[in-house]
Structure formats: C-alpha cells, structure tokens
C-alpha cells in the first residue's frame, strides 16, 4: 500500500498481515510486517500492543518499527500455546483512525552547541540549515518506538530529504534532550550517554525522570511536533522545569 510520508491518513482502517510470526527465542515471539507505509504500520502496531495488554498474560509487549514482540512466561505457557495465542492477535492488525489525538509540542533549540551536527547534516543533505529545521519542524511525527534507553523515543517517519546516515563514530557523550536524525527517523535522547545519531538540536524538556510521578514524557503511539526556539527560551524553559 503506497503512501507518501507525512500525508494525512483518512479515518479508514488499514490492515497489515504479518509476513512471519515465529519464536525470537525460547520465551519470546516476533511478528514481522512489510513496512511500505511505516507510519500507518506503527499506528497499527501500537493498537495491536494495547490489545495484547488488555488481553493480559504477557510479560512484555514491545512494538518495534516493523515488528511486534511479546515475552511470555515459559513456566506457565507452552511455546506452542503462546505462539497460537500470539498468532491470533498479530496475524492481522489494523491501524485505528489516526491523527485525532493531541499533538505534543516539543520546543527545540537547533544548531550551535545544542545541535552540533546541524550544519554538516544540512550540507550533506544539500539543504540550508533553515530548510532542514523547517522540514524537521513541519509535520507532526508519530512516536513509533521507545527503546535504547528509558524514555528514548524513535519518531517518524521523517521526509526523505532528511534521510541521513548515522555517524561513523558514535559520540561518547550526548546530552539528554538531544534530537537526532537518521534514516527516516528522528530521535529524542532521554539520558546523557553515548550515541550515534547526527544531532541537530536539543529540547529543554525532561524526557525521563525516575523521580517524577510520570517518569516518561512520551509514549509510543502519540504524536509530536518540533518547534524551533532560541537559546533564551531554551534557558528559560530548562530553568522552569
């Protein structure tokens, strides 16, 4: 099902049929899908994941970008039974009507020390830094997957014009809140640490705080839109909490 990135999806449900469903390990299962329309597929994977959560009986339910994994209790359920139960839920999945939920505003200070790879990335992509920022901050993106680190979000899919390779040498230190781009995705680093995505900016929002009532700012399945802010606003927002 061909679809261009960033297009509005209509309210009709889109079905995806699993290409394979199998054991990923002794106690986890994986269903893989064709990702010709990654954004709609992501929405379908989130819908399927919440269905599995409602069903219960799974130790972990982890949607990927074009796959869905579940971990089951090997002491309580036979592998064949778990596979049958998962197959029934994952064989055919549907995206719910998307685009209706609220879109979270993510303020980003682009370039400079906040986005040390902005200029080099723009040059590589044949864009001006301003064009890159405009493309990144234009359409809302879906949080497709949480992974890598607590609260780290993979969002997409970004326009083809922003598709860039990861850094050949990962950075030893990426500041929390950093925004990276790679392939057809943009990511938000929740913690400081090593990382390999070219960095174009940073948000003053705290993506993960173990001590906060709700530790995670973002959840898979929600939409975000990036908004350019200047350094003064970054400082003001960072200080304001």
């Amino acid at each position: 099902m061909p679809a261009s990135c960033g297009c509005r999806r209509d309210a009709a449900l889109t079905d995806f049929t699993a290409r394979t469903i199998r054991h990923g390990g002794d106690d986890w299962l994986i269903a893989r899908y064709d990702a010709s329309d990654p954004t709609t597929l992501s929405a379908a994977l989130q819908t399927a994941a919440s269905g599995l959560r409602d069903q219960g009986g799974w130790l972990d339910i982890v949607p990927g970008l074009a796959e869905l994994c579940v971990r089951f209790d090997l002491m309580k359920e036979k592998p064949a039974d778990a596979l049958a139960r998962f197959t029934a839920a994952a064989e055919k999945i549907s995206s719910a009507a998307a685009g209706e939920g609220t879109i979270m505003d993510i303020p980003v200070c682009y370039g400079g020390e906040y986005g040390p790879d902005l200029e080099a990335s723009a040059e590589k992509l044949g864009l001006s830094p301003d064009d890159l920022i405009a493309l990144h901050g234009g359409e809302p993106f879906l949080v497709q997957m949480m992974g890598f680190a607590p609260g780290f979000a993979y969002c997409g899919q970004t326009p083809e014009a922003l598709a860039i390779d990861r850094l050949s040498e990962p950075r030893r230190q990426v500041e929390a809140g950093s925004i990276g781009i790679a392939g057809r995705q943009t990511c938000l680093y929740s913690l400081s640490g090593p990382g390999g995505w070219p960095l174009i900016g940073r948000t003053p929002l705290k993506l993960f705080d173990a001590g906060r009532g709700e530790p995670f700012l973002l959840q898979a399945g929600q939409q975000v839109r990036f908004r350019a802010i200047d350094e003064a606003e970054f400082t003001r927002l960072a200080e304001g909490g």
């Binding site: 990923g24 390990g25 986890w28 994986i30 990702a35 972990d60 982890v62 990927g64 970008l65 074009a66 796959e67 994994c69 971990r71 997957m145 992974g147 890598f148 993979y154 392939g183």
Partner: peptide, 10 residues
C-alpha cells in the same frame, strides 16, 4: 536493519 526489540540472552 532497523532497530528492533532485544532481551537479555539475545
């Protein structure tokens, strides 16, 4: 490949 879920023991 795109990033996908992994678990201890993978």
């Amino acid at each position: 490949m795109q990033s996908g879920p992994v678990f201890p023991g993978t």
